[in-house]
Amino acid sequence: MTVPLSFYVAVSAGLFFIGCAGVLTRRNAVVILMCVELMLNAANLALVAFSRRFGAVDERGSVFVIFVFVIAAAEVAVGLAIVLSAYRNRPVIDVDEIHQMKG
């Protein structure tokens, strides 16, 4: 008995909403980055699940997962760099306190 596709999609949706809630409620910039990664990963699961169950032989859905990996890596590198340079100006990591850019 294989696990039906719907279960994978449900896990994906659940993880996406957990990440979403984290981005909304947490104030630590690093944790917000982590939650964004969780959301990207949830999207990956949905892509792979649909690709493996619906797709033809050529794995088109999974290819996008590779691009999502690239985006995630770039995003976390630049995001952390921004957090660190903001931290160097004023040593807070709290997104509510980082408001130098507000006019």
Partner: peptide, 14 residues
């Protein structure tokens, strides 16, 4: 959304 996700079913597992 999660409940809607349960409605997907695959025709053929690869």
């Amino acid at each position: 959304v999660v409940l809607f996700a349960f409605s997907f079913n695959a025709p053929t597992p690869q």
